[in-house]
Every structure is written in structure tokens, then in C-alpha cells.
Amino acid sequence: MKNKTLAVWLTFLLGALGLHRWYLLERYDALARLLPIPTLLGAYGVWRARSLGVDDLWSWLLIPMLGFTLAGCALNAIVYGLMAPEKWNQRFNAQAPVDAPAGATNWVTILGVGAALAVGTTVLMASIAFSFQRYFEYQMEDAQSLSQPAPLKKSAG
């Protein structure tokens, strides 16, 4: 029996590593294998930003990968938490009756949905803001370098 509350918290806390898919699907499917890639690349971007500074080009390209993966997993946790018990049991507990308690929503499930909503929204907005800020800063730097006149060559005389 797949418990909805456990799935919500597992998806919210460890979903970026694909562990929730192993729990729900009882196998390590392709998406579960792919989820750690943007997570680890984004974590590497955070490490680069902390050690090299936020002006590092690779860090601002990699950090949003982590943010978008975390936000996507938070959204998935919200979808699981708000799923009707009958639909939950039909999808993840096919052998159980539709009114099995594993698909029930309780206060711990709702707290998980609320935490996923708060953290997921914050991470998503921070990732978007960071991406656009760095993009526009690089655009401004390129524009300034184009607008500055080239140094004059001294003629040999």
C-alpha cells in the first residue's frame, strides 16, 4: 500500500533525487534516473557561485536547473496531496479498495502540501529572478563593451 502522506513528504524532500518515483512505482524508471542530473548540476552551480562568485557564467546557467527541479518536485507533491483518495488508490494501490486508508488525506498531508507550496513558490520565483537578473546584467555588459569606442592607434611618424 502506497501511503499518500509519505509520498507527499518524500516527493517534497527527496523528489529531486527521484526517490519518490522508486517508492510509488516500485522501480527506478527513466525519469527517476534523470532527476538527479539537473539537481547535481545545479548544486555544482551553487558551489561555483560560492567559490568563484556570482559573476561566474557557468554558475548562473546551472543554478536555475536546481531551482526548477526543486520547484517541479514541490508541484508534484502538491498534486499528490490534493489527489482524491479514490483516484490515489486507483492509481497507486490498484489491488486495494478505492476507499483504502492509504489514500486518505490528513493534517500531515495538508502540512506537506502547504510546505511544498511555500518552498516551491519561493524557489521558483528566486530561480526566475536570479536567471533574469544575470541575463540582463550580461546583456548590459555586452552593450557597454559595444558602445565604448575602440582605442585609437598611434601612427608611426
Rank of each mutant, 00 (worst) to 15 (best):
G53F: 04
D99T: 05
R134W: 09
A71S: 00
P101S: 05
Q133L: 13
S59I: 08
L124E: 05
G157Q: 14
A126S: 12
G53T: 01
L13E: 01
F12M: 03
S155G: 08
V119H: 02
W47K: 13
F132C: 11
T69Q: 11
F136H: 07
L6C: 12
G53Y: 04
E141G: 10
L124F: 13
K2I: 09
F92H: 05
S59Y: 06
V123Y: 02
F92N: 07
W9S: 00
A30E: 06
M83Y: 04
K4D: 01
Q133D: 13
S147M: 13
L34P: 06
E26P: 00
A77W: 04
G15P: 03
P85K: 08
W22A: 11
F68R: 11
V79F: 14
A16Q: 14
Q95N: 14
A74T: 03
I37V: 15
W107N: 15
V108P: 05
R91W: 13
P38Y: 03
R134K: 13
M83R: 09
T5P: 09
E86C: 02
T122M: 04
L146F: 11
G15C: 00
Q139W: 09
T39V: 07
N3A: 07
W107R: 15
A74N: 04
P151I: 04
L111D: 14
D29Y: 06
A150D: 08
G18T: 03
R21N: 09
M1Y: 13
A96S: 10
W9V: 01
I128E: 02
L19G: 00
S147P: 09
L25T: 12
L31S: 13
K154W: 02
M140K: 12
E141L: 14
A84Q: 14
K2Q: 12
Y44E: 08
A143E: 13
T122Q: 09
A96C: 09
W88G: 13
L34A: 12
W60D: 14
A116W: 09
Q133Y: 12
N76R: 15
F68D: 10
V119I: 12
T122N: 08
L10G: 01
T5S: 11
S59V: 05
V79I: 15
L24Q: 15
S59G: 01
L25P: 12
R50A: 12
L70V: 14
L10F: 02
V119S: 02
G120A: 10
V79G: 06
V113K: 01
A30D: 07
M83Q: 10
A129Q: 06
V54Q: 14
G15N: 05
R27D: 01
L41M: 01
A102D: 15
